[in-house]
């Protein structure tokens, strides 16, 4: 007998977005305070896993039609490319660059090349976590 999951599904529809927004917040917070791509990635993955729990795998695959292995590869490439940019500028590998910019709406903001690396980390974490969970979940 299938249990009644109306409450879970209804709550999930709201909570998922809260988690996703919080993931974005944590991702950018990682610049100077605790947080960053790894935690942000895990939070995002947990939001998707919550969707999977509340609904089922096929539904979630329809909502988020992403091949997570490809996502991992893209994340890896972004991260390596950011780190490798230092080769072009002939400074030691992984050397980062940053500057302050006046952006509309945000005001004076520091933009940092490490953020791009972190974006790669974020994608890899989401990709790997979801690949693992999907592989285990599909195997029944």
């Amino acid at each position: 007998m299938r249990t009644n999951d109306v409450m879970l599904q209804t709550a999930t529809k709201v909570v998922t977005f809260i988690i996703l927004m919080f993931a974005v917040h944590i991702f950018f917070a990682g610049h100077y305070t605790p947080g960053g791509g790894f935690v942000g990635g895990l939070l995002t993955a947990s939001a998707i896993v919550l969707l999977m729990l509340a609904f089922d795998l096929p539904t979630v695959k329809k909502i988020v039609p992403i091949n997570y292995v490809v996502l991992t590869a893209v994340g890896l490439l972004i991260a390596i490319a950011t780190a490798s940019a230092s080769i072009v500028f002939d400074v030691p590998f992984f050397t980062h660059a940053y500057d302050y910019f006046d952006l509309p709406l945000f005001g004076k903001t520091s933009l940092h090349s490490a953020m791009l690396f972190d974006l790669g980390v974020y994608l890899v974490v989401v990709g790997v976590t979801m690949t693992i969970i999907q592989t285990i979940g599909e195997d029944e």
């Binding site: 292995v69 490809v70 991992t72 590869a73 893209v74 890896l76 490439l77 390596i80 780190a83 490798s84 230092s86 080769i87 002939d90 400074v91 030691p92 590998f93």
Partner: peptide, 24 residues
């Protein structure tokens, strides 16, 4: 200072990531 020492580490990593894009 020379990044050359890193090339034998980074090159296979890049190619491995590229290979993950089209497994079939």
């Amino acid at each position: 200072m020379s990044n050359l020492a890193l090339f034998p580490i980074v090159i296979p990593l890049i190619f491995a990531a590229v290979l993950m894009l089209f497994p079939k």
